[in-house]
Computed example of a mutant assay.
Amino acid sequence: MPTITAWLANLVCIGFTLIYVAGFYIFRIPGNRNDPPVILARMKAVTVASFVSASVVWYLVQAIEAEESAATVLGLTQPLEVSCLKPLLLTVILFLGPLSVMFFDQELPFQKCFSFKRDVKMNLLSLIGQRNYVVAPLTEEFVFRACIIAVLNQAHYSKNYLIFISPLYFGIAHLHHALDNYNKMGRTRQALQQALFSSLFQFAYTTLFGWYASYLFIRVGSLWPPVFCHSFCNVMGFPDLGGNHHRSTVQKLIIYGCFPLGIVLFVHNFGNLTQPPSAAAGGSMYWK
Rank of each mutant, 00 (worst) to 15 (best):
S284L: 03
T77N: 04
L99E: 09
D35N: 09
H268N: 09
H176R: 05
V143D: 00
L125D: 01
D119Y: 06
S199R: 02
P137W: 05
P260D: 14
A22N: 00
P137S: 06
R42E: 13
V143S: 01
T249W: 13
L265V: 10
L85E: 14
L90Q: 14
P276Q: 06
F16W: 03
S222K: 07
K121L: 09
I26E: 00
L124Q: 06
R247F: 14
R131A: 00
H176I: 06
N160T: 05
H245E: 12
H246W: 08
N269L: 15
W58A: 12
L162Y: 04
N183P: 05
L200G: 03
A6F: 14
F142C: 01
F203E: 07
F114V: 08
L127E: 05
L88V: 10
L125R: 00
L216P: 02
L261A: 15
G257Q: 04
L125E: 04
H174D: 01
P37N: 11
K112P: 05
Y133D: 00
S198I: 03
Y212F: 15
N123S: 01
F103Q: 05
G271Y: 10
K159Q: 15
P37S: 08
L208S: 12
L11Q: 12
Y20P: 00
I19F: 00
A9I: 14
P79R: 14
L179A: 14
R247C: 04
A146V: 00
T207K: 03
G243V: 07
F144H: 07
W58S: 01
F232R: 04
W287E: 07
W287P: 04
P276T: 11
L80K: 08
L80N: 13
Q106K: 15
Y161S: 12
H268A: 15
P276N: 10
S198F: 08
M236S: 05
R219P: 03
G23T: 01
R219Q: 15
Q275D: 12
N160L: 13
V135F: 07
S214E: 01
L168H: 10
L88N: 12
Y215Q: 07
L241I: 15
H176Q: 09
G31S: 08
Y182C: 06
F104T: 10
W58M: 05
Q154V: 01
L261Y: 15
V235I: 13
M185T: 08
Y182I: 07
G31W: 10
S69G: 14
L179C: 02
T249G: 15
R187N: 15
V52W: 06
